[in-house]
Structure formats: C-alpha cells, structure tokens
Amino acid sequence: MVKYRVLIGKPGLDGHDRGAKFIARLLRDEGFEVIYTGIRHSAEEIASVAVSEDVAAIGLSSLSGAHLKFFPDVVSELKSRDASDIRVLGGGVIPDEDIPILIESGVETIFTPGAPAADIVASFRKACEAHQKENEGNY
C-alpha cells in the first residue's frame, strides 16, 4: 500500500501551533507521513515545500483571522507551480460565513474547532485517495 504524505503548516503570523501539532500527531498515528514545517510561513514557502516533498495534501491551520488571505494564496501558489492536484484542507478559528468563500477559492474542506478527530482523518484520507487516483499514470 502506498503511504500517504501530507504537509501540515501554519501560514501567517500568529505563533500558536498547538492545533497544527495535534493534527500532525493524529495523522502520524493513523499511518500518514507528515511533513511538519513549523509556524509563520508564507504561502509561497508552503507551496514550494509541498511540491518538493510530493505530498498529496496540505493541512493549514490559522487562528489569527488571516485565513481569507492565506488559504487561497496557498491554492494559487500551488497552481502557479503546476501542482493544483495537491489538495488543501484548512482548520482553525474560522467564522461560518467565511467557509463558502474558502471552498469557492479551491480549499477542499474546512474544520472548525471541535471537529471530531475521526472526521479530520477521514477527510485527509479522502483527499489523498482522490489525489492518488488523479495522478495514476502521470509521468
């Protein structure tokens, strides 16, 4: 079975990475290979790392309210690297009314605080499976 590789990162300026670390460990315990990049990175950095590491999905966490800028920025940075097949998932403190905007911009799923761990894992797994299907036979 192919191992799923995902990147967990924290764009933007706020320095709280508890949520991101929690997700990283959760996914590790479910058999994912998690590239963890730490905090305070630009969308450009995150997209660039995702390409080098050939991940299937990126999980972004934001608590600072900057999600409306950063999540779509990551999506478009991926696009400019010819890597739109890499799924973007987001979580954090995100008001309900922002969710459709983010989904519209190309983010696959948004998790809000209190989302059950099992749902989070299932979403990552689904994203990775879809990614793998899409890429079968490429190159």
Binding site: A24, R28, G31, E33, V34, Y36, T37, G38, E45
Partner: peptide, 15 residues
Amino acid sequence: GAILGDRIRMMQHAT
C-alpha cells in the same frame, strides 16, 4: 506513520 520535522530548521531555504 511518521512526523518528518527536520525541515523546520531549514525553512529559510524553502523557496
């Protein structure tokens, strides 16, 4: 699974 965290220290070269 695994957490691969060595990159944290090398992020200045990310781009």
